[in-house]
């Protein structure tokens, strides 16, 4: 177990529930208010200088967790300790200072950078917002950031518009923009999922070398477990707002315990010509709607091993060293 000295980000019992708007008819009939428990009692720890992968499909709550950690939205409950400080208690001025140290890289390199701004303006924007340095100093920082992400010659790239760059190059601009404030923590939300497979590794390698050079801690959000394996140290698998399984990435991927994790891994295709002759194993039942069980394990409806006890809430327990699972199948 990690000592708290090394702990960089400590998330405790984070919660965010969203009210679902009722139709007029539903209000008239006094139907119960529906709530989407997007993030429901999430806790995890990220050691300094490591890469923590938060994995799950759409609707799992992983992007909401990212937004809560950066306080882009306010949590209903819970705490986020950043290098010992509880950032959920910071006031506006303190929050701004925190944000110099915690930046985000978004998924879509076509949407996250303004098409009407030149690269120079895009990467400079965080410096302007935080009023760091003179104009000349800011320009220099932009050139350094572009060189760091291997967008060269920086002097040429800086004056282009985004449409003049490829998807991979645009994503590097997004990373340069996240780097320019020299943050210690970067949240990367599906940073490579919109890029060709042949280019993904290049961005991952860039992220790794930046991490070594600047001692950056990453929260890496994705649904792609194979790619995550190359960069991640720890992983937490999220399902409908809760953590189903968590642990060192090799342990979880090679020995998946939770039926949901097992299903995710079965679904991945390896490049094997033998696949032609086999059907893909889909053990879990198809979800027919967004109806959720109100108590108990939220995987109950789709689980091939569902038992009566699963109607009560499972808890995350440690099964082997640092490997946790939330499932009544364990301990065996």
């Amino acid at each position: 177990m990690q000592s708290t000295d090394n702990l960089f980000v400590d998330v405790r019992s984070l919660r965010k529930w969203f009210q679902v708007k009722r139709t007029f008819a539903e209000t008239m009939h006094s139907k119960e208010e529906k709530v989407v428990k997007a993030v429901d009692d999430i806790s995890f720890k990220i050691p300094k200088g490591s890469v923590f992968v938060l994995a799950g499909e759409s609707g799992s709550g992983k992007t909401t967790v990212a937004r809560l950690i950066l306080r882009a939205i306010e949590p209903d409950n819970g705490n986020v300790f950043f290098n010992g400080t509880d950032i959920t208690k910071l006031n506006e001025r303190e929050l701004k200072a925190f944000r110099i140290n915690a930046q985000m890289v978004h998924q879509d390199p076509y949407a996250s950078i303004d098409p009407r701004m030149r690269i120079m303006e895009i990467v400079m924007e965080p410096l302007s917002v935080h009023k760091i340095g003179s104009k000349k100093e800011q320009e220099e920082k932009v050139f350094r950031a572009l060189e760091e992400v291997r967008l060269e010659p920086a002097a040429d790239i800086a004056y282009r518009y985004p449409h003049m760059l490829s998807g991979g190059q645009r994503q590097r601009v997004a990373i340069a923009r996240a780097l320019v404030l020299k943050p210690k923590f970067i949240v990367a939300d599906e940073p490579v999922s919109m890029l060709d497979i042949s280019v993904r590794a290049e961005i991952l390698e860039l992220m790794q070398s930046l991490q070594k050079k600047h001692d950056i801690t990453y929260l890496y959000i994705t649904h792609d477990l194979s790619t995550a394996r190359y960069i991640g140290d720890q992983i937490a698998i999220m399902y409908l707002g809760k953590i189903a399984e968590m642990g060192p990435i090799d342990k979880v991927l090679l020995n998946p315990l939770h039926p949901y994790t097992q299903a995710l891994i079965d679904a991945i295709s390896e490049p094997d010509p033998g696949n032609l002759f086999k059907e893909k194993m889909v053990r879990i039942k198809t979800e027919t709607g967004i109806e959720r069980v109100s108590t108990g394990c939220n995987f109950y409806n789709r689980c091939p091993y569902a038992m009566d006890i699963c109607k009560t809430e499972p808890k995350l327990i440690e099964i082997e060293d640092s490997h946790y699972v939330s499932c009544f199948l364990y301990p065996k």
Binding site: I197, S198, R200, A201, S226, T227, R229, E270, P271
Partner: peptide, 22 residues
């Protein structure tokens, strides 16, 4: 060969490989 080497896999060596250039 480069494309095949760049495919991420769940098992085996964690060696990152990609096709340089455009």
């Amino acid at each position: 060969q480069a494309l095949i080497a760049a495919i991420p896999r769940l098992k085996g060596e964690k060696k990152i490989s990609y096709v340089k250039g455009t």
